[in-house]
Write a protein that binds this DNA or RNA. Structure first.
Lengths: 218, 218
DNA sequence: GTCTATAATACGATAGAC
DNA sequence: GTCTATCGTATTATAGAC
């Protein structure tokens, strides 16, 4: 059944298998990387296409415009994080344990998606959060806020501003990864993204945050 | 001595006063804003020129190339921060007080230069810290690291990793400002950049960090 | 569903007048 | 020291073949 030889010896591009869903996904992944690095304006459609192993025409075929693709990219993590929080069942844990799980989860998420965090900074600074606004972020923030509020009610956390402390926790969990490419030059002796160092950083973060919020009584 | 009328009634652009230093400075300021938003690649020379009130030709006259201008922009804050740390005289204060001063100073600096922090993220993610590497950042980090080490030696801080905790402190002090344009959509009821809220955030940050590093004995 | 070719525009950089 | 005009290239987006 197999053809004895290739039809064209010099055929450079083995025409890609036709698989709409796979192609769409590859474009989305490549776009996430490119938009994270350069933001909506700075991203190059050609770079996205190359990263996805297709031509730029495919981007427009599936996502209509660069902006449409950008919105699709921003959408994905919001839903993913929401599902992640839900699976943690934070309500079933005492506040300290819940907070530890949050920190571990947040850092693990950042480690798994090294440059995804930059998406939000790009979005904030290039588009004033115009597209960010569309995602349902309140929900994700409220998971952490609720843990802090419960800790205060139960008396194991000190009086604190839940929103501000949530921001501080996010800052602790993300800077390490967002700034990694700079930090590696400050500490060239360390493998900052190795599992060992990430675990070490995680433990330091848990210590700082748990000690930082606990009440004197608790 | 003065000419009785303008030579050309319709002359749209009142030719700018010739002041090399002023022009150079205006370009640098406009460039900082543009590079912070878009990074080296994404920044538009035309936008920088417009922001500085000059033509793009001036950029090349004073800084040779877009890249030359970018390097000049990155250089300025490194020196500024170094001078700022020096003036704090951290060695003269007990560790807790020194750390509080660091946090206050860091947040005040961010508040005074709202989007400057994005420069480093852009640099990290677009250029892998290639130009960041050239600034002398170790010096700035070591100011905080020394405070933490002294606190451990004197017994008022717990055993901690000074580099990691420094990163955590930086994360706490910067996320609020770097992500502000997104955060304002999460909490449209708050004026996050008002002096009052910044002061409130500062106090929360100090509480979290001081409690987070202090030893049980101290 | 995927590609090639191309139209239309935007951008970095320079030359030369003033 | 500053501007106008422009060259060459890179980029987004589309039309049409396969």
């Amino acid at each position: 059944m197999s053809r004895s030889t290739q039809p064209k010896i010099l055929s450079k591009k083995p025409r890609q298998v036709r698989d709409a869903e796979a192609t769409k996904q590859q474009i989305l992944d490549a776009a996430e990387a490119e938009f994270s690095r350069h933001g909506l304006n700075g991203a190059r459609t050609e770079a996205i296409a190359r990263g996805a192993g297709v031509t730029t025409a495919m981007i427009y075929y599936y996502y209509q415009s660069k902006e449409g693709l950008y919105q699709a990219v921003l959408q994905r993590p919001v839903v993913e994080m929401y599902e992640g929080f839900k699976q943690l069942n934070l309500d079933d844990l005492p506040p300290q344990a819940a907070l530890e799980v949050v920190v571990r989860g947040a850092i693990a998420y950042e480690a798994a998606h090294p440059q995804r965090g930059m998406l939000w900074f790009q979005e904030a600074n290039q588009n004033q959060g115009k597209y960010f606004k569309q995602g349902n972020w309140q929900e994700n923030f409220s998971y952490i806020i609720k843990v802090l509020e419960r800790g205060m009610t139960e008396g194991c956390f000190r009086q604190l501003d839940p929103f501000f402390v949530t921001l501080q926790i996010v800052g602790v969990c993300t800077l390490y990864f967002n700034a990694h490419e700079n930090l590696k030059h400050i500490r060239p002796d360390l493998q900052l993204l190795s599992p060992e160092l990430i675990e070490q950083y995680t433990q330091e973060a848990i210590k700082l945050i748990l000690a930082g919020v606990r009440s004197d009584k608790g």
